Structure formats: structure tokens, C-alpha cells
Amino acid sequence: MISVAVVDAETPGNVGTIARAMKNFGVSDLLLVDPPELDPDGEAYGFAGQARKDILPNAREVDFEYLVENYHTVGCTAITNEDARKHVRYPFRTPRELADSLVDVDADTCLVFGRERVGLTNAELAQLDEICAIPAAADYPVLNLGQAATVVLYEMRTLTLEATQLPDPELDRATEREVEGLHDQFETFLAAVDHPEEKRGKAQRLLRRLVGRAHPTDREAVTLRGIFRRAAQRARKADDS
């Protein structure tokens, strides 16, 4: 199971935003260390969306030591070190690498997010099991707390959502008959526009490679066939006039 902990959040709104992201990506267990007051009529519940019905009301207040003692902990931070000698923040995983690494981990994991302005301290990170950081522009790598949690939780979705809840990644690719029909129509088009005959084979191979990488849908293939057909017809009419 994956849980989320927010340490010493300054604004209730960020707690609500994180709760909403949890709801989006199938995480329900929210742990709060030194939280602000979460007024049911305040911004935390206002920002939480549907998470105000279950995740926020069921959030548990714990201390930092509870996280360390009961979970495989992942500290989420924007500031890292590329030097192995400074090992408190190194090495670190990206959110995608973290998701891949957790597939075979048979342990309850807690994603730990820190304060809005300063994040998790070195002393806190030193107690956690591993570090996760989001790659961002070097001149401004710091994300808003709610944004950071959303990005990390998005990458966790393959672990937290049932397969039936995930969109079907299978592409509705055009049939081979439609694809070959597109290539035949392109051949006719090249002849109609009087493309140099010695270059037609190369042009056809280039289109075949392009279409092969693109995996067009039936509708895309049919549309392109129609465009080539109309263009060929107009080219012939222009030649006849």
C-alpha cells in the first residue's frame, strides 16, 4: 500500500490539493505531521474536491518517528546533490524510476512531502529510506508542494489504480488493408503530380517508414487517402485544361 505524509504544512490549501491528487490517482491514506488546522468550511476542504468526503476526514495525525518506524519511506525533495560524498540527498530516483522500483517491493510505502518554503530538512531526510526528486529546469527546479505531490502520485498510478481504472493503452490502429490502400493512393498521387519517376520509389519508402512509426488509426488513414485522391484529381484536371 502507498500512503502520503505531509510534514508541517503551512497552508491548509496545500493539504487539500494533495488530498485531491491522492483521490485522482487511487491513494487514500493521508498522514499529517504537525498539520495546520483543517476547518471543514476552510480552504483545505475547498481545494480537496471529492477527497473532502473521505480522504481529509480520515487523515491521521502522527509524528515523524511513526513514519520512520512503520513504512518504507521516500522523501520527496526538489534540492538534490550530484556528489556521492553528500549522501543525505544522493542518490535519488525520479518519480518514474521510483514507481518502477516499487513494483516488486512487498512493504507499505509512504511518500513524504515537506514544507512549502524549505521542504524536508537534512535531519529528516537522513532518517528516510530513499529520496525522490522531480527533474525540472535548472534555473527554477522548485515546484509548489501540491504540484510536486501531483506529479509523483501520477507516476504511481500503475501501482495504485486497478487495471480496470486505467485507460486502455492499446491503439486503434488502422487495418493493414487501410494502410496499404493509403500507400496505393500515394503512388497514384505521385504520378498525378508528375513527381520525377526516378524519385517515386524513394518517396514511397519514406512515407511507408513514416506511417509505420505513426501507427495511424482507420480514420487517419482514410482521411489521408481522401486528401491524396482529391489532390490527384485536381492535378489531372489542371493538366487537361
Rank of each mutant, 00 (worst) to 15 (best):
L128K: 02
R236K: 06
V142P: 01
R236T: 02
G146W: 00
V62P: 03
G46C: 12
T80Q: 03
N81P: 08
A44I: 14
L38F: 06
A231P: 00
L210Q: 07
P40E: 15
G119I: 09
D129F: 03
L166N: 11
D34M: 13
G49T: 06
Q233R: 13
A21H: 09
N144A: 11
R213V: 02
P196W: 01
R200A: 05
T150Q: 09
I134M: 00
V4Q: 08
R85D: 15
E61K: 15
D41E: 15
A126F: 03
M156K: 11
P167L: 09
K53R: 14
T109P: 05
V62I: 10
R205Y: 07
G75R: 04
G212K: 10
L224N: 12
P196D: 01
A107N: 04
R230G: 02
R205M: 10
T188S: 13
K86I: 08
A221R: 01
P40D: 14
Q233M: 06
T223G: 06
E37P: 08
Y45A: 14
V27Y: 07
L98A: 11
R225H: 04
D54A: 14
M1Q: 07
E116Q: 08
C76W: 00
G212A: 13
D139E: 15
A9Q: 05
R157Y: 12
P36S: 13
A148G: 04
R85L: 13
T158N: 14
L38V: 09
N24K: 08
G42A: 14
L161M: 15
I55N: 07
T80E: 03
V118C: 14
C132L: 01
R213F: 07
H87I: 02
Y90S: 14
V222M: 10
D83Y: 06
S28H: 12
L182N: 02
V193L: 04
I2Y: 02
F64N: 11
M156E: 10
E116N: 11
K202Q: 14
R60G: 03
E124Y: 04
Q147W: 00
T223W: 03
R20H: 13
V7Y: 04
V118L: 10
A221D: 03
Q50R: 12
C110R: 06
